[in-house]
Design a protein around this nucleic acid. Structure first.
Lengths: 107, 107
DNA sequence: TTACTTGTTTACAAATATACGAACTAATGA
DNA sequence: TCATTAGTTCGTATATTTGTAAACAAGTAA
């Protein structure tokens, strides 16, 4: 049988984006790094929850962080993460446009 | 508070890719349509399970299908789906390369 | 040392997602 | 009509993910 471990790893990267809080985090970090505390304020997510989401994103390789004193700064691990994020949004846009067409035809 | 429904929809599209079987399906459909039966043979996934995964992908707007006689043919809803798939794989590649570097430095 | 700030980890409940056999439906042909 | 093929849906068991409070850890500063 064919080896499917590549599909598994590939899906793991996709999973790192597959949550609305994580999408919001990528949106915030798209062009600049932010500390944990800043992300906390912007998102309004409880800190333990936010920490877990950031941890998942780090493990899956889509974020990196550095510690400076008490603060931890997070950013995208590569511009490719934003490209992937962006293409997903394009797919969403296309889907919404198609739905608009459908509604127009119903009227 | 800020409206987060866009993040939710965006994450839903990502979720459609976030499973190894669904990644495999996109890989198979990247450049041609296939019938359910062909997908069944290629993937080896039980038919009820395959049908459910295809259903999820249809609902999330990343696949479309047409029926012809007894057969159902599936394909990507847009080339953008493959672009998104591809960028995810690029992120994975980058991560693997970084891990290789780390191992090299350990030696 | 003590207290404070910033963030992580743990424990566990609740919610979602996945897997798969069995039953079911739709189209075709004998 | 009856059987066959192709695929979907249902019931339900299992697995994975998520959310939250509470405990914990690490760095800074008095």
């Amino acid at each position: 049988m064919k080896d499917k471990s590549l599909f598994k790893m590939h899906a793991d990267v996709c999973k790192a984006l597959a949550h609305s809080i994580r999408i919001e985090i990528i949106d915030i970090l798209k062009d600049k790094e932010k500390s944990f505390g800043e992300l906390l304020k912007i998102t309004g997510v409880p800190k333990s929850n936010l920490s877990q989401h950031l941890s998942v994103m780090n493990q899956k390789g889509i974020l990196i962080h550095r510690k400076e004193g008490l603060r931890v700064y997070h950013k995208l691990s590569s511009p490719k993460v934003y490209n992937a994020f962006y293409m997903m949004r394009e797919v969403l846009k296309e889907r919404i446009l198609k739905q608009k067409e459908l509604i127009k035809n119903i009227k």
